[in-house]
């Protein structure tokens, strides 16, 4: 099955005098894990917002496959297969984890179109099955019936990933999904990412855990001050002098 590639072309986003995203070109091909690193305030989350349509770029375009999706609303983009998780988990706090995932399944594109605004009350038993399978495969079954607002952040992040997966993405944008996970969990999480990518999904991973990014990703973009300063396979980016200096200055990385 051929899935679409996500491309950003010359994206610019300014906040007053500050250019948070500065002419960024990027591509996330199917089946690959694309890493995106950069110090705080580099513009990674803002780039995500432009890609998913939460915010409009001042310049540039977002392409999914051959289609220019720059003008579409976020939910429409999501139904085309572009799904994101947020830096601050965005679970629906008054619902159970299971219902959170159900929302993901129920609004995904393949099931869209029937009923009022695609929201007929027709009950689809397979939806619940999908959710249960997803919960099981992420080891979340025990939490299924807990209200999302009561969970600790680690579980929230995992549940948010599960909800995103339920939406059946072609492209999955993950904003710091592994922050707050311990070493063992991170290990398991990277295996999960691999599995998803192997199914043909394009993943874009933002994380401050540079080791995780460099091990699990197929290609890496490094951003500083809104600009892409390095791009290539992990080894190349890691060796890049700008990346070196930024991260050594921050003291958070191991070269």
């Amino acid at each position: 099955m051929s899935r679409a590639e996500l491309r950003a072309v010359g994206l610019v986003r300014r906040y007053g005098g500050l250019t948070a995203v500065d002419h960024v070109d990027m591509s996330a091909p199917p089946g690959m894990i694309t890493g995106l690193i950069g110090p705080n305030g580099a513009g990674k989350s803002t780039l995500f917002k432009l890609l998913t349509g939460v915010e409009q770029p001042d310049e540039g375009a977002v392409l999914l496959g051959d289609r220019d999706i720059s003008k579409l609303r976020p939910d429409k983009r999501s139904r085309l297969g572009l799904v994101q998780t947020f830096q601050v988990p965005s679970l629906f706090t008054s619902m159970t984890v299971r219902d959170n995932l159900l929302v993901g399944v129920e609004n995904r594109r393949r099931d869209y179109g029937g009923g009022l605004f695609g929201l007929g009350v027709r009950k689809n038993p397979s939806h619940e099955q999908v959710v249960d399978d997803m919960l099981a495969s992420l080891g979340l079954s025990d939490l299924a019936d807990f209200v999302a607002g009561s969970l600790p952040t680690g579980a929230l992040r995992l549940a948010e990933c599960a909800r995103a997966l339920c939406a059946h993405p072609d492209v999955l944008l993950l904003d710091e999904p592994a922050s707050g996970l311990d070493a063992v969990e991170t290990e398991r999480f990277s295996a999960l990412l691999r599995r998803i990518a192997d199914a043909g999904v394009a993943i874009v991973l933002v994380d401050h855990d540079v080791d995780l990014v460099f091990t699990v990703c197929d290609q890496v973009y490094a951003m500083v001050g809104g600009k892409v300063v390095a791009h290539g396979d992990p080894a190349t980016v890691r060796a890049n002098p700008t990346v070196q200096s930024v991260y050594l200055a921050q003291g958070s990385v191991a070269a």
Binding site: P74, D75, V83, Q84, F92, T93, E160, A164, A167
Partner: peptide, 15 residues
């Protein structure tokens, strides 16, 4: 609960 989160998984917020 979370408008952006809902849109991110395809909920047709506007309609």
């Amino acid at each position: 609960d979370h408008t952006e989160g809902a849109a991110a998984v395809g909920v047709d917020v506007r309609n």
